[in-house]
Design a protein around this nucleic acid. Structure first.
Lengths: 234, 234
DNA sequence: AAGTTTTGTTTGTCAGACAATCCAATAAAC
DNA sequence: GTTTATTGGATTGTCTGACAAACAAAACTT
């Protein structure tokens, strides 16, 4: 019946104004915004309050402040967004199993898209990592190559939302993924199996077979999941 | 060969520390953090710098600052984050088509999980919205019921990661979804079709048929996508 | 004309101050 | 004894002023 009285902080009001200016197109990428002193006088607020608002936009990657030069509207990059999302996701209690479930579904779908949309360049990048891994890779290097291969597949999907979400989920699962990798690296057979599966995924994408690529990734990740569960129980 | 020297701002270093504390579980929801003065002395930074970091967490909904009381860890709600994410998405790197693509895959997968895991309570909630919509609903009310039904299906999946991601994506797509709904509401035939599809989805979940539920949602959302494209071209 | 220095501007950080607000302990009233 | 008022301390919100660091452009030197 009664609405809660909004006790908005100054910084939040500034953010709303900035948002409107961005939506309306009055602020475009690359443009320089007035100096902090000038803006604070225009808005009728202190420099501190204005800076708190600007800092938010800075962390979100919407603006870039250059010392001694000025502040400019920037194009937000995926990495930044993924970082922020990770931060937000941390304050929620997310089950690792739920995360892995979503990872499997998104990554296998990314593979199917990759099979449709991959460029020759995408293939070359993915192949490079696989060849390196073929020449024997252990420990951290192997773990890195594994991650790079999976990333290259996702990027080949050409869907930036997928890239962002997978960045985020990988970040949240990083500990689990690392321990998985070290678990695997203890067994030469498992390592060979993984590498074989990677090549099968690559082939499916190279030959532009979406459904096959999707299934290969799905099975690949599910394998890992099953093995983890087995090891944990034992 | 050489890496760019990172000239990290104090505020960003504080944010990283907070992130680690959240990851490690030293900070839990509801907990109170030290006062600004105390924290600034502990960290060896000025109160201003600390406040800039805290303000970022505040806007992201990770903490809540209460004047005269203190600052507390809060569970970030995705609804609020949607606001922030739209700000970020304004840089247009997130294509609407990419978002919709991911929405379809996640929501249809959520339906398959819902078919496996739904409780009777989940069913009752979903059914309630459908019955209301049956009794004729127009304009905003219909739009709301539509959203509520889709939400109830996702919640029935019992995967909080899915719930979170779909909240976020819905927030980013909110404008598009609204316009879609108003488009549809102009045609009684389309409205009936949508409602029929909703019931089919419900039945599949009620009868615990994962694959069917998944396909129904997939087709349902793809239908909407196709119709949007047609209307836009005409 | 080219290179160097200077100067002014802008962001980054700090310190201090005061108002607004809340919690709790204390005092007062019943 | 219980309830209500008052008070005081603590905390966040905001403002002001100051200085350092870094950059760009103007002024200067060669």
């Amino acid at each position: 019946m009664f609405k809660t009285v909004k006790n908005k902080k100054i910084c939040e009001e500034i953010l709303e104004q900035m948002k409107e200016l961005l939506v309306s197109g009055h602020l475009t990428v690359g443009q320089r915004i007035p100096s902090e002193i000038e803006l604070s006088e225009t808005l009728g607020v202190s420099r501190s309050s204005l800076r708190e608002a600007l800092r938010v936009l800075d962390v979100l990657g919407i603006i870039e402040a250059k010392t001694g030069d000025g502040t400019f509207i920037k194009e937000a990059k995926m990495e930044n967004i993924g970082n922020i999302m990770t931060l937000v996701a941390l304050s929620k209690e997310l089950e690792t199993s739920d995360l892995y479930e979503v990872r499997i579904i998104l990554e296998s779908y990314a593979a199917s898209l990759a099979a449709e949309r991959r460029s020759n360049e995408d293939l070359a990048i993915a192949k490079k990592y696989l060849l390196k891994a073929d020449n024997g890779s252990t420990g951290e290097e192997g773990s890195l190559l594994d991650h790079l291969f999976h990333s290259s597949v996702i990027k080949a999907s050409k869907n930036n939302v997928l890239v962002m979400l997978m960045d985020m989920i990988s970040g949240l699962l990083s500990e689990q993924i690392k321990s998985t990798r070290t678990l695997f690296s203890s067994s030469a057979e498992l390592m060979e199996l993984i590498q074989k599966q990677h090549w099968e995924i690559y082939d499916a994408i190279e030959q532009q077979k979406p459904l096959e690529a999707q299934k290969k990734v799905f099975d690949h990740l599910n394998n890992a999941k099953i093995i983890i569960n087995l090891k944990q129980k034992s």
